Simulated scan of single mutants.
Amino acid sequence: MNYSKFLICCFIASLSFGCKPTETVAVEKNADSENTVFSDYTIAFGSCDNQKLENKLWKPILEHNPDVWIWGGDNVYADTDNMDLLRKNYRTQSQTEGYMTLKASAKIFGTWDDHDYGLNDGGEEFSAKSESQIEMLDFLEVDENDIRRKRAGVYHAELINLPKGTLNIIVLDTRYFRSGLTEAKGSKKRYQPNTYGEGTVLGTAQWDWLSKELTTSKADFNIIVSSIQFLSSEHGFETWGNFPHEVDKLKSLIVESNAKGVILLSGDRHISEFSKIEIEGLDYPLIDFTSSGLTHAYRGFSGEPNPYRVEKVVSVESFGLLKFDFDSKTVSMEMRGENNVLQQKILQKY
């Protein structure tokens, strides 16, 4: 192509794409993926989907033809102990055209957060949690013989066997058993960390279950879904960091279990970001991929501390993608928005 034609092409491209947000791509140096085609398996996930608002992301989600869709919490906004109302809201969400199309082609996983659980920032104290669990499982179309129908909490794990490897999807419940939070005093923050050793995020039964899942897992990748952030803990909202001993407990479990390729997925915050930490004894970095929200975002975001953040916060509507290559043991993690715009990306080799 000669120089004049090149300038014309650039001008046409600027007309086509000039209104789209700027792409921010962070590529890990240890991921030699120049010639990698991430086609072995695709997981899409997201959180914070208000059934009263238009979700403009179903179309770009469907364009990636994901094998799995994971609801990360706040899958509807209800904040109620009225099960008729909650059921109505779930029905509205279930009948959304884009989601109906997705359900026909992808396997559905999901956890809840506070607004679909039924109580803002709620935990074990919510009086209608067992009734709310039934509605949540109905929304996910969980089989009547599934163990989640017989026990407290919506936590769940499933091993996915593929021609080139295996994936273990581990969905946590950070609501049903979670202890009370400590309100922050003399600060603009909502909460402060509990005294070390006091309270729990998962509760005894779920911790025992998770320990067994990770310790016995032979999967190439272990995807842990938490509705609230795990690594980012200084913002003063809900986070695992409000229970610092529980953070240490999960870190230790991941190391001691020798589980391969552990990746954390989270939501809740109405912002999207990558957080990453190196943990002694773990031969890969632990990444917490936060994707939120699907129908609304914290567009007025002006900053908050997070020493583990990779690149910058995305504060417009977005969804998350994980694309796997089992030959190179590499995962492409992408934040994408309206019109399928790539907002940020990490390539990580495991």
Rank of each mutant, 00 (worst) to 15 (best):
I61F: 01
S4K: 09
R309W: 11
E141S: 13
D325A: 11
K164S: 12
Q348T: 14
K345G: 09
F6Y: 15
P193V: 04
S328D: 05
T174N: 14
S332L: 15
S47I: 00
A13H: 06
L342I: 10
S132T: 11
Q133W: 01
K52I: 02
F324G: 04
T111E: 02
E23Y: 07
D143M: 08
V331P: 01
D114I: 04
Y117F: 15
H64L: 08
H115S: 05
I134N: 09
L102R: 00
H235V: 15
F45R: 00
L7T: 07
A128H: 10
L53F: 00
H270I: 07
E183G: 11
A104V: 05
F301L: 09
N89G: 04
W69V: 01
R151Y: 07
F324Y: 08
V313R: 04
M333K: 09
F45L: 08
F319M: 06
L167H: 01
D114W: 02
S232I: 04
I70W: 11
I287W: 03
I279T: 10
S179R: 06
A152L: 07
P307T: 03
Y298P: 02
I223K: 05
I224L: 15
Q206D: 11
K212M: 12
V154W: 00
P285K: 06
A259Y: 01
N65S: 15
K188I: 13
F177N: 11
D121I: 15
Y99Q: 04
L231Y: 01
E238K: 07
V37S: 14
L214N: 02
N75Y: 03
S226V: 08
N242W: 00
E280P: 03
A26M: 07
T24L: 13
K189W: 01
K312E: 11
Y350G: 07
Q95M: 13
R149V: 09
N50K: 10
F45M: 05
G267W: 05
F11K: 12
Y155P: 13
G46Y: 00
Q344K: 14
D40I: 13
V201D: 04
S232R: 12
F109K: 04
F221A: 06
E34R: 15
F45G: 02
N120H: 14
P244I: 07
L286K: 05
E131I: 02
N168F: 10
L85T: 11
M1R: 08
E213N: 08
S266K: 06
K185T: 10
Y77N: 10
